[in-house]
Nucleic acid binder design. Structure first.
Lengths: 409, 409
DNA sequence: ATCAGTAATTAACTTCGTCAAGAATTGAAT
DNA sequence: ATTCAATTCTTGACGAAGTTAATTACTGAT
């Protein structure tokens, strides 16, 4: 297969449009692609051909076709997910979580590695080992995987593959893409972890079809990834999506960020545990014990979680009032998830109460995500980077798409 | 002039790039345009020609040229602002404010009209009269003005020229563009008023050069227009930029929107006046009297304004934490402006305290805007609609611009 | 005067997509 | 059965829009 079919990436606008549409919108016939994209059907035929020849796309079996009746039946194009593989690794302060995915960013294999040190060199060495282990699982991986995506919390300069500042890892100005590329021999992308997860939802999850949506992560902290006008919001100073530091609590409580009343200072894991400890008079209570107490029905503990849910709901409402996303995907990890049932009702209620006007119509989707799925996000970034249309640099401010309406005299 | 030179709009990408760059970035030489845009200089020459021939662009006088020395001196292209005129009208519940502007959206003439009724027909009739009056001021206007922009508060569907819902006017589903076009004979655009002002800043004001910025309006209510990735954020449910309904006050006070602790419920004109009235024990105090009391140094009155400034600063910080805009333009009208000195220090302080990390680096620009400048915003929308590049419809989610970084084995 | 350096233009060419015609493939009508 | 209408896909000629490379235009310094 590979000898005959060289690797391929998108070059023209039509190619990017056609390929990403088949990739993200499942099997689609050529005419349907033409209709949705505005391209001529001739252009779709031409653009699809090299991808079919290179083994990335294929026509669906005739048996699976669906047609209303008259006319030549469509032969929908579908992705061949095994044509290329991708590695994604989520880097936390004490662990590496890695996955191999197919073109659809579906995880095929995973592996973990505990980190003793957060020093850059040590992490990169462990990363190379982890990647080697993952690629060794199947000869096809070694052969058809050329991209590695890394997801790191903190301020990441994706364009230059730099970690500008990662508080948990205590990294500053680390050229992680270059280091990882040298250590693994793969093409490397580096992106913020929440944004990576957002990209995964945008192309392969519940963000498909929405030109704007938000993803809210509930966990140790509260994070948020935003997609507006089909693009992830990067933030000009390396800051974006800091829903955790919206001051919904008025002047209380103080937050580690220096602000007051932050969502995270109320609904982060630390303040919740502290709250339950105070409520129960047990200063050594563990996270899980705090959750258990609430699940057992302790009113004081439940109240702490309800307050947290209230804060999260208000933060989400503030975000929705500013952006007007089509959907909000709520996700998170332990203990955010283990305790989610303790938040959920209050989140929904407070969101609905504070969302302005039609913003309350925004759909809330609860989507638990495992750690592997964060790593999957990293792989999704490398997939998107490879195939999305690189727009010509726009220097001037671009306008809206709408045309004027009305009659001319 | 006009007989020889037909009207022109941008058709190709190069034309839109060149024309809007000259329009928004002042006199620029062709090579400089090529450098900034990535186009070849040949393409710039070709794209500029029809605009020069049609009288929209011209080469700068040799005397105004500036060169470092050696080589052929550049002959920068500049806009000819009088080539075409635009009418912009801001519609409030009790007044129409109209302006004629040039291509740079600089107001050349203005006129007002009080409204007795907010009925659609009556407003449109008054609008037609106002436009006729404005166009009559100079024969050139009649001859070279073909576009009318309307700015309305509330939920506007710009693409279809519909006012979906405007609370102040009590309008629902009004096809305003069609009606106004029929009444005036002009091509009409309709846009939300805050977004219109945002467009004016984006192309002709302090947003030039920023691919993301926010505009905050302080007045009766608190509003916000957002530009992300060079595009105005529309909001999917007709809601966006509702910074006034971010709950920064915790659970107090209740807001007319049904929420609690909204910025607007603390810093809107009504709650400020109510607060000063309560503080001074005078239930009939006017807005201006409340401002005067604070200016005179009354501590209780000053405290009310300080609290308002605090709420606004927190709301702006919440917005900056979510978006990471490059700049924030603070603007407003009476009494927001007349009292701005009473807010300003507290806004800056609370913003700085709550902005997360590098978001605090975001520049705050205070830019008072008159009512005429809101009308100017409406004209700016019609200018942008006419000349900005209409992108091909993008159906699939588009990715980031960054390319992968690193080495390949 | 010549020359080096920068700006602008021109002409040949490339690329990418559209258009219009036709081939392919089906169900329904005669 | 055969024709027809409907729909999908393909093909090749064409055209629009941009690029590259060479040329012209203009300047200050040697």
């Amino acid at each position: 297969m590979t000898a005959m079919h060289p690797r391929l990436t998108t070059t023209t606008r039509a190619e990017a449009t056609v390929f990403t549409m088949v990739l993200t919108q499942g099997p689609v016939s050529r005419v349907e692609i033409a209709r949705r994209s505005g391209l001529s059907s001739a252009a779709v035929t031409k653009a699809a051909r090299p991808f079919i020849e290179a083994g990335y796309l294929a026509e669906l079996e005739a048996t699976e076709r669906t047609g209303p009746g008259a006319g030549r039946p469509a032969s929908p194009l579908t992705i061949r997910p095994d044509r290329e593989f991708f590695t994604g690794v989520k880097i936390t302060d004490d662990e590496l979580i890695g996955v191999i995915t197919d073109l659809r960013a579906q995880p095929l294999a995973s592996a973990h590695r505990r980190l003793e040190t957060s020093g850059v060199e040590g992490v990169v060495a462990q990363l190379a080992e982890l990647v080697a282990e993952l690629l060794a699982a199947d000869p096809a991986y070694r052969e058809r995987c050329h991209s590695l995506g890394l997801a790191v919390s903190g301020d990441v300069d994706k364009a230059h593959g730099m970690v500008r500042y990662s508080p948990f890892l205590s990294w500053r100005q680390v050229p992680l893409a270059r280091l990882a590329a040298a250590a693994t021999g793969l093409t490397v992308t580096v992106e913020n972890d929440v944004k990576s997860l957002t990209v995964a939802e945008q192309w392969f999850g519940d963000g498909v079809g929405a030109s704007s949506f938000a993803l809210v992560t509930v966990g140790m902290g509260i994070g948020c990834g935003l997609v507006v006008n089909d693009r992830v919001v990067a933030g000009s100073h390396g800051v974006a999506g800091e829903i955790g530091h919206i001051p919904v609590g008025g002047d209380e409580p103080p937050c580690h960020c220096g602000g007051r009343g932050c969502v995270e200072a109320i609904a982060g894991t630390a303040p919740i545990v502290a709250g339950v400890r105070a409520a129960l008079g047990d200063p050594t209570l563990s996270v899980n014990a705090a959750i258990d107490a609430a699940h057992a029905g302790n009113p004081a503990a439940r109240e702490v979680f309800a307050r947290a849910g209230h804060a999260i709901g208000l933060g989400m409402a503030a975000m929705a009032n500013l952006f007007g996303p089509e959907r909000i995907i709520v996700t998170g990890d332990v203990p955010g998830l283990a305790a989610y049932d303790l938040f959920e009702e209050q989140i929904n209620r407070s969101f609905a109460a504070q969302a302005f006007g039609a913003a309350a119509d925004c759909r809330l989707l609860l989507r638990p995500r495992t750690f592997e799925q964060w790593a999957r996000g990293a792989a999704a970034v490398s997939i998107q980077t490879l195939f999305s249309r690189e727009e010509a640099p726009v220097v001037t401010s671009a306008g809206d798409r709408a045309r004027p309406h009305g009659m001319r005299a």
